[in-house]
Design a binder for these strands. Sequence first.
RNA 1: GGGGCUGUGGGGUAGCUUGGUAUCCUACGGGCUUUGGGAGCCUGCGACCCCGGUUCAAAUCCGGGCAGCCCCA
Length: 465
Amino acid sequence: MINKKSSGSEWYNEIIETASLVDKRYPVKGMNVLPPYGFKLVSIVDSIIREAVNSNGFEESMFPMLISRDQLSVEFEHVKGFEGQVFWVTRGGNEPLEVDLALRPTSEAAMYPMFSLWIRTHSDLPLKLYQIVNTYRYETKHTRAFIRDREIHFFEAHTAHADFDDSERQMQEYKQIMKNISQKLCLPYVINKRPEWDKFPGSQYSLAFDLILPSGRSLQIGTIHQYGENFAKNYDIRYSDPAGERKLVSQTTYGMSGRLIAAIVFMHGDDKGLVLPPYVAPIQFIIVPIPGENRNLAKYSTRVLEQIASLGYRVRLDNRGSYTPGFKYNDWEMRGVPFRIEIGSKETEGNFITIVPRNTGKRSKIQISELQNSLASAVTTLQDDLMKAAEEKMREMTVQVNDIKNAKTSTGMIRLMWCGRKECADKIEQETELSCLGYPQDDSGEGKCVICSLPAKPAYFSRTY
RNA sequence: GGGGCUGUGGGGUAGCUUGGUAUCCUACGGGCUUUGGGAGCCUGCGACCCCGGUUCAAAUCCGGGCAGCCCCA
C-alpha cells in the first residue's frame, strides 16, 4: 500500500481500485465502472441525500438525458457557459438526426420548459423537485475518478418560488440540509461565495461547500445557486399571483456529485486503506471467525450475525475457508469496514465478542447480552471521532496569511484579505498558484487587500481538485 | 490551455538501448496440510493496448490512434 502522506494522489488512485470502489479499466475516457462495493457506497450516500431532502418537502422526479438542440440554443449565458463541454448525439442508426441531441451537462434546459407548463398559479409554488441521475460533460482536462468524470453521478435539486425572498429562504434551507448530510458523512466544510467570474452560468450568485483535504487541496463537494428570475425569463416560467397578475418565478438549485465519495476517501483514509464512517459503510460489521478445535464456532458466529442484522446493521460473516484471520483483518481494513468482530474459542466460551474499530484498532469485549447498547454506542463514538478528526485536519490546513509572500509559501486553505476585484484576485492567483474560492460566509473580519490595500474582507484561496 | 511520462497474463513487473527463445512476484483453479495479524508445499491456467510502416523477422525501431498517470497555466 502506498503511503498516504507522501503521495496523496497516487494513494487515492490506488486505494479506490484496490478497495473495489471503481474499476478504471473501462476503455472510454472519464467513464468508470462501479463494482458492487463501490455502487453500494454510492447508493447509500444517495439514500442519505434522499432522506434529507424528502424530509424538507422535495419530491424525486426524472427528466430525459437527451436535450434537443433547440432547447439548448436559447440566447442565454447559462447555455454559453456549457458550450464546448457538451456531448452531442448526431446520428440515429445510419441516418443523421434532423435535430442534434445533447447529453445533459446539467438539467435546467430539460426541466424548465416543463416547469413552464406545470406552473400555472401561486398555489403551484413553491415547486421543489430533485433527481439523481448521470450527467455528461466533455472534460478536456485530466479526468479523475469521482472528482472529474465525463459521466457524473449527479444529485440536482431545482426549486421555483413566488418571489425572491422565498428563494432566499430556500438557500438557507439548503444549508441546513447540507449540514445534516455532512454529519453523516463526517465531512466538515466552509461555505464560500464564489466570485462573479466563477459562479454557475446563469445564476445571480453561487455558494460552494468547500472541503480542505489533508493534501492541502480543496474540494468542492456541493453548490447552491440563487437564480432569481434569470432562468424564468428565458424559459418563460410564470404564474398568476392572488391578484391575478402574471409574474416570473424565482429559482434556486442545489448540486452534489460523486465528489462526496472522493471526499470521504481522502478525508478519512489512512495507510491501511479506506476508513468509512458507519453511516455510509456498505458493511458496518465484519465478523471474522477464528477456527480452532471449536465445534460451536459456526453456530455461534451465525447467531451473532443474525442478532446484529436484526438490530438493523449491515453485517457480514467472512466464512472464506482459504484465508487466515490475519489476511481477512487486512483485507477488510483496506476496504474501510468500520468494525471488525473477532470470534474464537474464548468468545464462544465466555459468551462475548471482541470488537475492533477501524480508526483505533483497539480490541474490546462486548457481552452478548449487551450487544444492542454497546454496538449503538460504538457506532456513535466512531462517527463522532471521525468528524472530530476531520475538523481537526481542516483546522490544521487553514492558514491565516497577512501578506502575499506568506501566501506563496503556505499550503492549505489560505485566508487573506481581498478587496473583491478581479485584477487583484488574478494577481494573487498568478503569484501563488492558488485559486480564489471566494468569501467565506460566517466570517466578519475586515482589513486591507494584500495587493492594492483597499478596504477588504477575508477570502479563501487554495489549490483545488 | 501547455508540457512530459507510460501502456507486457486479473494486478505488479523483467526484457526494449543493440529486432529472433517473454522473466519473476502476486492473484486465480485443483490437491494436501493449516488458521488469535497478510500460512506452506505440489500442480494448473493466463500477456506483449489498437491500426499502419520498416524488416527475412517487431514486445523491442518509426508514425498515428486510444487509454492512463504526472507537472505547469
